[in-house]
Structures are given as structure tokens and as C-alpha cells.
Nucleic acid binder design. Sequence first.
DNA 1: AAGAATGTTATGTA
DNA 2: CTACATAACATTCT
Length: 271
Amino acid sequence: MPEGHTIHRAARDQRPHLVGRRLSVSSPQGRFAEGAEALDGRTCESVEAYGKHLLYGFEGGRSLHLHLGLYGRFHAARGPSPEPRGAVRVRLATLDYTVDCNGPAACEALDPPERARLLLRIGPDLLRADADAERAWARIHRSRTPLGVLLMDQSVLSGIGNIYRTELLWRARLHPLLPGRDFPRPAFDALWDDARRLLEIGVETGAIVTVEAGSKAARRPFRDRVEIMRKADCPRCGGPVRELDMAGRRAFVCERCAPAPDTSAPVADAG
DNA sequence: AAGAATGTTATGTA
DNA sequence: CTACATAACATTCT
């Protein structure tokens, strides 16, 4: 269940157990690991999250790249060889700690140039302190592409998935179909800050929580922790929620809170 | 038990 | 070339 918060939380949790240690890298159920096992026995030097990507740097310069895709997960446990749970693709282990990664969409060893190429494709990561908002804004403010699509484009900014996108737009009372170029700068700044806040809550709690943090609802099942995702009625105004297909995923909008942008009579470009 | 799902990329079409 | 939509892939949950 990965958006950026899942990956950053995993990096934060795993780092102290792995960095500076020699790791066994294996595929305990014999699943294809795309060269990851070549890193077996090397010392781990870094564990870093970039958007939804996790990179383990190894002595010698090569990295292990994991991407959880739609339903990948991590299982961490004390001890060197716990029973694998579910479909484990790769296992990273020291003598007293084991991380299993289940069902990732990417699990591969990268050379330094390949790693650099990957990082170039990833837009500013809201969960990294040095995230460059100007870079994201440069892509957004001149684009005709709808906000609902731009927010999920990992090369524009990284870490946001379908749920955060949907919730963020609802919170900001912005319609997902609003073209990026019609997005006012102050609204962008506010959304950027809100996104960081929500993602940080996600890292702390290990779950997507967009209702009031610390509330009772925040501890309940998924549908209670979000405001509008997969809801039929708007929790703010009671209006009906409309479903949109955006970038192949379902977005939810209250058009009473966020009126649809005017699509009529586009003015011809002068140039 | 079928279908949807917190994701991405490659390919097809206009 | 662009901007889309669609398919494909990995697995788990409802």
C-alpha cells in the first residue's frame, strides 16, 4: 500500500539496522530477483528513499533498487531467518534483522550511472528537506494537463499517489480537471505545504490519515481515515461525490466544493 | 470469487 | 511530436 510515506518510513526504520552491516541478499522462495542477488554478502552503506523508490547503496558503488508498485510490502523482523510471509521476492538480512520485500514491481541491481539516470527521472520529493518547489512549479504553471494528473506524475513531484492526490485536491477545494496553468501560485504553495504535512503524518503513523490526526477516526479502518476517497457524499457539504477517471485511476470530487473548471470557448493562442 | 486496488511503463491511436 | 487511452505486470483484499 505504497505512496511516498510508505517508502520513507521503510527507509527510516531499516537504515539503522542495515547501514554499515554486511547483508545477505537472497530470494528465499526462488522468485526471480533481476540480479539483486549479485549484491549478496556486500556491506550496505546507505538506505535512501526518493519518492516511491528505495535505494540501498552498497560498498563498491552498486545499488539495490526496489519499487513497491501497487501492492508491494515490507516485512521486518528480528533474527536472521524468520518464516517468509506471503510472496517474498527479496530478503535482506543481517545476523539479527531481516527485511522481506513482497511483490515489488522493481527489484534490481543498479550501476552508479543507472542509479543517476533513475534519480534524474524523479521529481522533487516532498518528504526530502531539500525538495525544490520551483522545479515542480515550473512544470505545472505552463501545463494544460489537469492538476489531478500532474500531482500523480512522479517526474513533476514525487511521493503522491491516488489517495493523497484525491484528498489534497478536496482539502484545497480544487477540481482535479483544473489545468495546471490555471493553478494560482499561492494555491500551489498552500498545496505543497499541505502535501508535506500529510505525508509526514503518513510516515509517523504508517498509514494514510487525512482526517484529523490523533482523532478516533484516524485509528479506524481505511475508509474512516480519509475524507472523500471512495465516498458517496462529501463530508464537508453533504453534496454528491463525482467519480472521475484520471491517469487510469479513480479520483473523487465534490463539485459543490470545487466547481468544475470552465471548458467552454477556449481562446485561440495569439502566437 | 470476481474485481478492484495506495503504481508504472510500454504500446497503440488520434 | 504530443497527448491521450489501454494493456500488461506484480499480489492482496474485499
